Simulated assay, not measured.
Amino acid sequence: MKSYSAAVALAGFVSSVAAHGYITSPAPRLPGDGLKAACGDQVYNQQSSDHYGNVQGSIQNLQGDHPDCRIWQCKGVPFSDAGEVFSYTAGQVIPMTVEIRAPHDGVANVSVVKVSSDTVIGAPLISWDQYALTSSPLSEHPDWTSFDITMPDVSSECANAGDCVIQWYWNAASIDQTYEACIDFTMGGGSSGTVPASSASAAPATSATPKASSAPASSAPASSAPATSAAPTATVPASTPTPSSVEVVATPTATAGSGSDSTLPETFTIDSFITWLRANAGSDAANKVRRMVAARRAHPRAFEL
């Protein structure tokens, strides 16, 4: 006899699975009171206890209506939670360090993002079409966790604190988990005499990136972040509630059995399953599964084809 317990266990497992990654240097935004105000206590509690977690896990913990929660931008952590705001110049080389606590096959990039429009400025500063593979030890790929980026001239877009961020983005699509972290910075029109110590190593724009052959900027499609485009070609609008891939796995036949029956029907769609779960397990369990389904949608700036 089937019951809702397996589904509830799965929902809890997916939200608690810890595939981890976050920027450790330069100092990124960390969850604070701004995240709590924008996205609610549950999201704040989850991220403050483990800021290495994934975006989808935060979505599953959204409770109620939060119109100011921009969960796909910097994992919802707003500028009000910014710590240090770095001052960079065009052509400056910035050493970056990422901590990956658990690898999962995916793609990744680092880009300058215009906060107000949530769009990438220009092309990714560095990208990987294979990132954090479980089949290859992290020790064999130091370029996944320690690398340099060269700052483009974004002085006209990023003159003020809060205008832009450097965003590290890792998407492990096979397990539907996405990781983000953001660095706040400004860029004036000329040379800066007050570059923070953690970003003080400046170099010409032609400086090489470590192991560039394994992660050339050209590995991302040219359409991923055109300078004049509001979003990459492969984007899915943020308003899309559920991707087509979720609908495909739902059984497209009429629901068998009654929603009031505690036995799980042999065939069902996503909607009828959530209705059945609400009747047999309560609204909390049903809403959790509904949020899981919604979390499977693509990132608004997904750059892979």
Rank of each mutant, 00 (worst) to 15 (best):
residue 39 C to F: 09
residue 301 R to I: 01
residue 235 T to Q: 15
residue 67 P to K: 10
residue 9 A to H: 14
residue 140 E to H: 14
residue 21 G to E: 12
residue 5 S to G: 06
residue 60 Q to A: 13
residue 292 M to H: 14
residue 60 Q to T: 12
residue 271 D to Y: 03
residue 187 M to K: 01
residue 55 V to H: 00
residue 52 Y to C: 02
residue 287 N to P: 02
residue 159 A to R: 15
residue 20 H to V: 02
residue 171 N to A: 13
residue 230 A to K: 03
residue 32 G to T: 06
residue 169 Y to T: 11
residue 63 Q to F: 05
residue 191 S to Q: 09
residue 280 N to H: 09
residue 198 S to T: 07
residue 185 F to M: 02
residue 88 Y to A: 02
residue 66 H to D: 04
residue 295 A to R: 03
residue 276 W to E: 06
residue 197 A to C: 06
residue 236 V to D: 10
residue 287 N to K: 07
residue 180 E to Y: 10
residue 286 A to G: 14
residue 203 A to S: 06
residue 118 D to G: 00
residue 285 A to V: 06
residue 267 T to G: 08
residue 154 V to K: 05
residue 36 K to S: 08
residue 137 P to R: 12
residue 161 A to M: 01
residue 164 C to K: 02
residue 53 G to E: 03
residue 167 Q to K: 07
residue 266 E to S: 12
residue 220 A to H: 09
residue 141 H to V: 12
residue 136 S to W: 00
residue 51 H to Q: 10
residue 274 I to K: 14
residue 202 A to G: 05
residue 237 P to V: 11
residue 251 T to A: 10
residue 133 L to R: 14
residue 218 S to K: 08
residue 196 P to V: 01
residue 217 A to C: 01
residue 217 A to N: 09
residue 265 P to Q: 14
residue 206 T to G: 03
residue 83 G to A: 07
residue 250 A to M: 06
residue 80 S to F: 07
residue 116 S to P: 00
residue 56 Q to S: 06
residue 304 E to T: 08
residue 259 G to E: 03
residue 223 S to I: 11
residue 169 Y to M: 06
residue 126 I to S: 08
residue 50 D to S: 11
residue 184 D to A: 10
residue 239 S to H: 07
residue 101 R to A: 07
residue 224 S to E: 05
residue 69 C to I: 01
residue 69 C to V: 10
residue 242 T to K: 09
residue 236 V to N: 04
residue 80 S to P: 05
residue 207 S to H: 04
residue 63 Q to P: 00
residue 276 W to V: 02
residue 152 P to K: 08
residue 114 K to A: 10
residue 179 Y to P: 01
residue 239 S to T: 13
residue 25 S to Y: 11
residue 87 S to H: 08
residue 163 D to H: 13
residue 124 P to N: 11
residue 240 T to D: 12
residue 120 V to F: 09
residue 154 V to S: 11
residue 149 I to R: 04
residue 42 Q to K: 09
residue 223 S to P: 02
residue 219 S to G: 11
residue 16 S to V: 12
residue 181 A to W: 02
residue 11 A to S: 15
residue 56 Q to K: 11
